[in-house]
Structures are given as structure tokens and as C-alpha cells.
């Protein structure tokens, strides 16, 4: 009973009014707002539906009214969360040492500064420079650097394996490979200073790439011939999406080794490199590849809640 009602009941008794009061009414029921129910519509275009079978991109996903289906939204949010987590992850300080690499780091002080100051991420700090001069042999054909880049998750996942595979592939082609260098807080251009310092003919940095939807584990590789501070992106060749659902690391290593050899043979890299002369082979895996299936991160019950906006998604996405 409410405070005021109790107060008035007591006052009423004191004033001598004895007739019993009616019992309080039951609690009111709030009428639910009217729900408009839209049924999920599958993608109508057969072209889009067929295209969706060959990509992990968001095509042919159908619609519910004017909006996405619930399971499409949930999947999108989960994939975005994976990307956010990958950007926020930080490479442990002792990671490179534990992997048997020469540990170096850029001039960045902390993770936030790393995200905000790309310029500082492109230069080695003084301690790293000294360590590099002391521990890493000079004059290799290919200098491989494993780095965190924008996804420490990817670096810790497949970074070492890709580096080892690339080293083996280069050696199989008769190229010498320097000691593996592990860089923290590194941007792509850090390979210029490291390669210049170690007098390598080709510098190859393998680093976590800026995460996309659901791919927090993707690696990119950037190769540059005759690395010097001041080289631009026009001087580099790169390969992205090195992960299980993109280019598998083993295949990527074979292609990158062929690229490095072509750079040394032609004496250049970047836009002036003639890719037509890159020595291709069956192991480079440039033929037909089976359609990639989107990885489901969430399952939507589709039981049809009060709003009725749920239900299975459109476009044959759920498999």
C-alpha cells in the first residue's frame, strides 16, 4: 500500500469513520503496443544469390521490410566486435624473443599512440637499432620481418608460420634469408629502416592487416627491393588477406618467394616491376578455388519473438 494511502487510512480511523473501504484495484496491465510484423524476404535476384555463394561479402542477404534480417544484423555486430578486438589487442613485449626472433620496436610509447601516430610506428627506437646491429646478420637476399601492425591477433596466430614458410620457400629458390625480426608497434614502412640497416636486397614485412568484418586474423605482406628510408608505397608489392578463408599461408609463402625472386632478377619493385615475368607455377595456386563460405559467429533462433522481425535470414546465407 502506498505511503499516502496508509497515512489517510490512519487519519480516517482517528476521525471516527468506520465504514470499510473497497479493496484496492488490481495492478493495471499495460497494453502492449501494436506490433507490425514483416516477414523475411529472400533475395529475389538469382544473380545476387549466385554471387553470394562465391564471396564472404554481404551480398544477396535479403531483407525484412526496409531493414536487414535479424540474423544478418547479429552476424554483422559479431564480426564488427571481432575486428574491434583485433585492433585493441597488443603484442606481448616478450613475444618475439619467445619465438626466437630478434625483437625490435618502433618509437611509439604505447598502444594508443601507435594508433594515433603512424609516423612514429615507421621508425625504430634507439635500443632496437642497437640490438639489430648487434644480433642480426647483414647482407641477406631477403630480410623477413614479422610485425603486429593493426592486428596483434593475426600476428600471434599465423605470423610465425608464414615467416617460416616464406623462409623455406626463398631458400628453395636459392635465396639467402636473414634472421627473423619480430617488431612491435610496427607500421609497414618500418621495413625500410630495418632492411637498410641490415643491407638486405629485399625486405618483406608480414603484419596483421587492418581487420575487416570477421577477419581479425588476416595478415598482409609488403615487399620492397633495395629498402631505404624514403621508399614510397609505389615502390612496394603487397599481398593481403593471408588467412584460412583468403589466401592460405602456405600458398602465400610460395607466391611471395616468387615475387622476391622476380624483384632481385629485375632489380626493382613496385609499379616498375613486370609482374608478367614473375615465375608462376602450379604451386602458386592461381587456378580455380572453391567458393568461400562465411563463418557463422552467431546463430539466431528465428523462433519469431514478439516483434516478429526475426526469422531465418534471406538469400541462402544459412548453411
Amino acid at each position: 500500500m502506498s505511503r499516502t494511502r496508509a497515512l489517510m487510512t490512519a487519519l480516517r480511523a482517528r476521525l471516527g469513520a468506520a465504514e470499510p473501504l473497497a479493496p484496492p484495484p488490481p495492478l493495471p496491465r499495460v497494453e502492449a503496443p501494436p506490433a507490425r510484423v514483416y516477414t523475411p524476404r529472400r533475395e529475389a535476384s538469382r544473380f545476387a544469390a549466385e554471387a553470394a555463394r562465391h564471396t564472404t561479402a554481404l551480398v544477396g542477404i535479403g531483407h525484412v521490410g526496409t531493414r536487414y534480417a535479424t540474423d544478418v544484423v547479429l552476424q554483422f555486430q559479431a564480426e564488427l566486435a571481432v575486428a574491434h578486438a583485433a585492433v585493441a589487442a597488443e603484442l606481448p613485449d616478450d613475444w618475439a624473443e619467445a619465438q626466437g626472433m630478434v625483437p625490435v620496436r618502433s618509437r611509439v610509447a604505447d598502444h594508443r599512440e601507435f594508433l594515433l601516430r603512424p609516423d612514429l610506428g615507421r621508425r625504430l627506437d634507439d635500443a632496437s637499432l642497437a640490438r639489430l646491429r648487434q644480433r642480426a646478420p647483414r647482407g641477406a637476399d631477403v630480410q623477413i620481418i614479422v610485425a603486429d601492425g593493426l592486428s596483434a591477433v593475426a600476428c600471434q596466430g599465423a605470423g610465425k608460420a608464414l615467416a617460416e614458410a616464406l623462409r623455406a620457400a626463398c631458400q628453395a629458390r636459392g635465396l639467402t634469408v636473414g634472421a627473423l625480426v619480430g617488431a612491435k608497434f610496427a607500421r609497414v614502412w618500418l621495413e625500410d629502416e630495418i632492411g637498410q640497416e641490415l643491407d638486405a636486397r629485399v625486405a618483406a614485412i608480414l603484419l596483421g592487416e587492418r581487420p575487416g568484418l570477421g577477419t581479425g586474423d588476416g595478415l598482409s605482406a609488403y615487399l620492397v627491393y633495395a629498402p631505404r628510408i624514403g621508399k614510397t608505397d609505389g615502390d612496394r608489392n603487397m599481398m593481403s588477406n593471408i588467412h584460412a578463408r583468403g589466401t592460405p599461408p602456405a600458398q602465400a609463402a610460395a607466391r611471395l618467394a616468387a615475387l622476391a625472386q622476380a624483384m632481385i632478377a629485375q632489380g626493382t619493385s613496385g609499379v616498375t616491376l613486370d609482374l608478367a615475368q614473375v615465375d608462376g607455377g602450379a604451386e602458386l595456386g592461381v587456378g580455380y578455388r572453391a567458393p568461400q563460405v562465411r563463418q557463422r559467429l552467431v546463430e539466431h533462433g528465428g523462433g519469431g519473438g514478439a516483434g516478429g522481425a526475426g526469422g531465418a535470414g534471406g538469400g541462402g546465407r544459412r548453411r
Partner: peptide, 23 residues
């Protein structure tokens, strides 16, 4: 957002039914 309105209306109607009134 609409759900906050729902929660607010529920408290409001409960108060009108059980607490605040003229005598």
C-alpha cells in the same frame, strides 16, 4: 528509445492505480 517509454508508462500507471489519488 521505445522500450524506455514502455518502462516509464508501466511505473506511471502503477502509481496512478495504487498511490497517487484524490480523497
Amino acid at each position: 528509445e521505445p522500450q524506455a517509454i514502455e518502462d516509464g508508462l508501466e511505473a506511471l500507471l502503477r502509481c496512478l492505480a495504487h498511490d497517487a489519488c484524490f480523497y
